[in-house]
């Protein structure tokens, strides 16, 4: 708290500290969004030519 006294950011940091799991969850969802994008894209690129497109 004292470290941030000069910047006036202590309140916002304290508020974030109360919800660390929310940000962890958002980052985890972002990771899986990329995985779904990549492997979903691969599934499309493999299946369509096999289906004769």
């Amino acid at each position: 708290m004292t470290d941030d006294a000069d910047t006036g950011r202590s309140d916002s940091r304290a508020a974030h500290a109360e919800h660390p799991s929310m940000h962890d969850r958002a980052r985890f969802i972002l990771f899986w969004a990329w995985m779904v994008l990549i492997f979903g894209g691969l599934a499309v690129m493999i299946t369509l030519p096999l289906a004769g497109r």
Binding site: I38, F39, L42, M45, I46, L48, P49, L50, G52, R53
Partner: peptide, 16 residues
């Protein structure tokens, strides 16, 4: 794994 799968996809699409 993504490299090998996308290279395989390239081979299928390129062949078609």
């Amino acid at each position: 794994a993504v490299f090998l799968l996308s290279w395989f996809a390239q081979s299928l699409g390129g062949m078609a």
